[in-house]
Design a protein around this nucleic acid. Structure first.
Lengths: 233, 233
DNA sequence: CGTGAGTTTGACGCTGTTCAATACTTGTGG
DNA sequence: CCACAAGTATTGAACAGCGTCAAACTCACG
């Protein structure tokens, strides 16, 4: 599933994937890989911009994305927002070690999730060291991602930020030349620590230079991927 | 130790502390709380600015700070640096889930560390679910810290950043009105995503407004803590 | 003392923000 | 099917915050 921490002969899996929920034992039975409702996995739907949970809510559930995109974010008292991550199909979010969520989660677009009761995860974990190893590994990947994001936020220019976002999001696309964005310019701006105007201007600049094509606001064609890679320090 | 993830009757411990190494079993023996060299805990000294390990080095060891301060950071190809965190007495760093370190670690000032062999931690972890729970909890606290840092880097002004740093570092001081800094302005700047000039100017501004007193470059007196708190959104 | 690293301060300029106007997209109702 | 409205995105102009460059200052240490 992931680069094993302790000796293991399991296969490595894509780093973007979240916790392998099939590893979660529920009431003694192994949960299936499919996201159909089980003893604890409940399928939920959220409309665009709907709140899934709020920072400091009691963290009784965690979630796996079946379809759609979720954003996790923090707010300052005056409404300034920093998006920590976008979660898409297969990603797990809402896992906490403490009693409360440390950030808010909202639906970027209409999406389908499976929720799991944390309490039962705790029980699984108590019985299963392997499950805790996965939890630890999941957490450490979150740390690594957050550190990379901090480097971007603290030390990259607007152009470098936007390029990094495009390349990152391109990996979520099936067609690797056409990016279809689930999020608005505001979401991108709040993820990159910029304003919508700067994001828009930077994309226009990349289009003017023939690096990308803006088919529509949400559809971006990568015309010169090598140039884009070169801009990504 | 922390708000328990799984049911537990252990006592809570300071959140700033890292992994409680005394929970680490070594060769079947419980390691002592003291940092004296044991079967796996080896005391090491590092001089100011000495490299402890480098990003992408093989992560065979992890460390606990006995005295002094350590910075963990990432670099861009052109030398731009983002400091992820400062680690002081009692903090653990260098714990990884993957084979390689995800960032570099350097001594901010002369410091004493205890190193532990990761391999033996793996063995302990296999035998001890409680230890993995601690690892997971440690990792999740790292995530929470990194998220807070991202909010600071992406959405706060220079003034807010410097104030946040002062308040954060004040908690490391014994005297809660006098901050003694272990790091240079360059370190502070690279932690906050600013330049040394901006850090210096912002500190001067706070002094001019009577909020702090700059006794020397490394000694800062907090004169109006309430004002400082108010500036920290 | 003299030296050099680290820090402060000033002048200036650039990057990204702010404010504002325009354009595009999408959904709704006539 | 088109007109209209509302939300979203783009573009422009002016501004400001922070960065850059350069010089002066401080302080620890030889």
């Amino acid at each position: 599933m992931l680069t094993s921490f302790a000796p293991s002969n399991r296969q490595a899996a894509p780093a973007l994937q979240g916790l392998p929920i099939q590893g979660l034992r529920m009431n003694g039975a192994e949960a299936t890989q499919s996201s159909r409702p089980g003893p604890t996995g409940t399928t939920l739907h959220f409309a665009q911009d709907q709140e899934i949970y709020c920072e400091s809510d009691e963290a009784n559930l965690f979630f796996k994305v079946v379809s759609g995109v979720v954003r996790t974010c923090k707010f300052l008292y005056d409404g300034r927002r920093q998006i920590d991550a976008f979660h898409s199909e297969g990603d797990v979010f809402g896992v906490e070690a403490s009693a409360e969520y440390s950030y808010s989660a909202e639906a970027v677009c209409d999406c389908t999730l499976v929720s799991y009761r944390r309490q039962e995860m705790d029980v699984s974990a108590l019985e299963d060291t392997g499950f805790y190893r996965q939890l630890f590994s999941y957490a450490m990947r979150s740390v690594a991602r957050a550190q990379g994001h901090a480097l971007l936020l603290g030390r990259k220019s607007a152009l470098e930020k936007v390029v990094a976002f495009l390349l990152d999001w391109a990996r979520h696309s099936t067609d690797n030349e056409m990016i279809v964005l689930a999020m608005t310019r505001q979401d991108i701006a709040d993820y990159l620590g910029l304003t919508i105007e700067t994001v828009s201007r930077t994309l226009s600049l990349l289009e003017r230079d023939g690096v990308i094509g803006l088919m529509s606001a949400r559809q971006i064609r990568i015309i010169r991927p090598a140039t884009l890679q070169a801009l990504n320090s």
